Amino acid sequence: MMSWHLTSKNKPKGVNQMRCYRLNSFRIWIAILILAVFVSGCSLEEGEQDNKITIGFAAMNVEMTWMKFAYHAMHKKAAELGVELITYDANNDVTKQAINIEDLIKRGVDAIITDPVNVKGLNSALELAFRKGTPVVAFDRSAFGAPYLFFVGSDDVEAGRLACRFLADRLNGVGEIIVLEGAIGSSPAINRSKGFYDEINKYPEMKIVFKKSGGFLRDEGYRIMEEAMAKVVSFDAVYSQNDDMILGAIEAMENAGITPEKVLTIGTDAIPKALIAIREGRLDATTQYPISQVEIALEKLVNYLKTGNMPQWKEHLVKPWVITIENISTGDFYSIIQD
């Protein structure tokens, strides 16, 4: 009996068509499945991007020396936390800073972090943020009476006290002092002044013979020191509420023939150039303005946005310390001057 097997040559036409149809259908379903997985992945990635936390940084002035380091620390921490940071620089103009905050609110950022130019100038902008439901955190500088979530800074009152105690110790409680104050109306200047002037009252034989605001600027420190030397017959020490001004003042004294060993000097912030000046013997001391406040403020803000949990404190002050040649390696930026 003859057996008949279907081959590619002798299969009925309908069978071949059916198999081709099934094969094409299978291929189509595979293509659809791959496309669905691809689209799902893209949608997930887009969704993750859409859900990424965006924080507006309404900076006071990113060109000021300590703020340059704060700016880089802020962006580095934002990258570590996986959040987007949008920076607006007010260039030390409180009106511009208020406008920047209003613009960030309009952009719909999840929160705002800021270091107010002065203690009162941002109140209206921060009240608007509160009404619009945009959380605001302040660091470095506070805004008195404004509705912000919390504040992280350095204990500037203590920094003023420490500077005064350093001078009192080195001068044995007797001497005439020139004071270079910071930007008028800023919380660091207000609080450092309070700490220094309250503490100096404990030393009746220590006198302030000249004081003036230099706005935290090096050029102003130089100019004011020239003015002070023209008006003051003698002085034993210079206290500056930041390092930029004291470095300007030292330059003015050196140009006037006053060598470092003749006058006791102390600044504030412990920026790299101040540490170098200490190492070179041109500056006696500075008070560390901790950079860690930047990281703490942003980390706590992001945690609040993710969990809704507020820190256990409304105000967190990082303790400063005096840096001299003996403990120069404790400075936040000491590693920079090693390069």
Score class of each variant (00 low, 15 high):
M2C: 14
M2E: 13
K9N: 15
N10M: 02
P12D: 07
K13I: 14
G14Y: 05
Y21K: 12
L23M: 07
F26H: 13
I30H: 06
I53R: 02
I55D: 08
F57A: 12
M60K: 03
N61D: 09
M64K: 10
A70I: 05
A73L: 05
K77R: 06
K77F: 07
E80P: 12
E84C: 11
D89I: 01
D93T: 12
V94K: 13
I99K: 10
D103V: 10
I105E: 15
A111W: 10
A111P: 03
T114R: 04
N118V: 01
K120G: 09
G121V: 02
L122C: 01
L126D: 06
F130Q: 15
R131T: 12
R131D: 14
A138M: 04
A138S: 12
A143H: 15
G145W: 02
F151Q: 02
V152I: 00
V152T: 00
G153T: 12
D156H: 14
A159T: 13
R161P: 08
L162D: 04
L162K: 05
L171I: 14
V174K: 05
I177S: 00
I178S: 10
L180S: 07
E181P: 06
A183F: 05
I184P: 08
P188I: 00
K194M: 08
G195A: 11
E199I: 02
I200G: 05
I200F: 00
K202H: 04
K202C: 11
K202A: 09
Y203R: 00
P204H: 09
E205M: 13
K207I: 10
V209C: 14
V209A: 09
K211E: 14
Y222G: 12
Y222I: 09
I224S: 03
I224F: 05
M225V: 02
A228M: 03
M229L: 06
M229I: 05
V233S: 08
V238R: 03
Q241G: 01
N242W: 00
D243H: 11
D244F: 01
M245C: 14
L247T: 04
L247D: 14
L247S: 08
E251V: 11
M253K: 02
N255T: 12
I258G: 14
T259K: 07
K262H: 09
I266E: 01
D269H: 01
I271M: 08
A277R: 06
R279E: 15
E280F: 05
R282Q: 10
R282N: 04
D284L: 01
A285E: 09
T287E: 09
P290G: 04
V294H: 12
E299L: 12
T307G: 13
M310E: 09
P311T: 10
P311L: 07
P311V: 02
E315T: 04
P320S: 08
V322R: 01
I323H: 15
T324M: 06
T324H: 03
N327I: 00
T330S: 03
G331P: 13
S335M: 15
I336D: 05
I337H: 09
Q338F: 00
